[in-house]
């Protein structure tokens, strides 16, 4: 899903950058208000771990393998603000060292995998958690969130590619279809993996999950430990 430089038109890339900037500002403010300076090294070591995890392939339905995008589990464990910053850093290092992604397409990639890929799973997860108020709700929310996040991110990537009429040689329908279909399969794998990781973390170290602190203030709060 990483879009390399040269795939998108300059105009689309610029628009995506402009779209992402407010989210960056919002997240930096958000992180400052909910996290202490303790979390900076903590977020960094976790980001490094997610970077390593992205390099592990996992099997998905249909006989192919894919790697975890990690957005959903980042959103659930670190919250959306830190999740976006963490994803931004992962994408930056990947672009620089693997050429996976790019400088000009950086905004677009952050939008797809950092904004859509983190905020959507987070919102779905929080909503299910608040409605069902139990562990089952959390797990269903985590699965649907991960699935939707992946698929929507892919659809956005398809849109950006398709709308780049100058540089990308296929049209919107083909781009969106190809990305969407492929990633709805990957999304199921991501969903299953996210649910499993979450349930293991809940049973082993629920104290590490900081959802109470991360949730935006306008959402009613819920005590996670009680719902175990």
């Amino acid at each position: 899903m990483h879009i390399p430089d040269g795939f998108l038109d300059l105009s689309i890339s610029t628009i995506m950058f402009l779209l992402v900037i407010p989210f960056w500002i919002f997240s930096i403010k958000g992180v400052r208000s909910v996290l202490s300076d303790k979390q900076v090294p903590l977020m960094a070591t976790l980001t490094a771990m997610f970077f390593a995890a992205q390099m592990m392939n996992y099997p998905i339905i249909g006989g192919t393998t894919a790697h975890l995008l990690g957005g959903p589990i980042l959103a659930i464990t670190l919250g959306p603000y830190a999740g976006l910053i963490s994803m931004t850093i992962i994408l930056f290092i990947q672009a620089l060292f693997f050429g996976d992604g790019g400088l000009i397409t950086f905004g677009a990639n952050v939008w797809n995998m950092g904004v859509i890929g983190v905020f959507i799973p987070y919102l779905v997860f929080i909503i299910f958690m608040k409605i069902m108020r139990n562990k089952k709700g959390m797990l269903i929310g985590a699965f649907l969130g991960a699935f939707l996040g992946d698929v929507l991110a892919a659809i956005f990537a398809g849109l950006e590619l398709g709308l780049s009429t100058i540089n990308f040689p296929y049209n919107v329908q083909i781009a969106v279809m190809a990305m969407g279909v492929h990633h709805s399969v990957i999304g199921i794998g991501e969903g299953i993996a996210t649910v499993m990781i979450l349930s293991i973390l809940l049973s082993k170290r629920s104290d590490l999950l900081q959802l109470q602190k991360m949730a935006p203030r306008w959402l009613p709060s819920i005590d996670l430990r009680g719902s175990k």
Binding site: M49, A52, L68, M196, I200
Partner: peptide
Amino acid sequence: LSTLFIRSY
């Protein structure tokens, strides 16, 4: 991955 997560934390 969850073990890695806990260790990194």
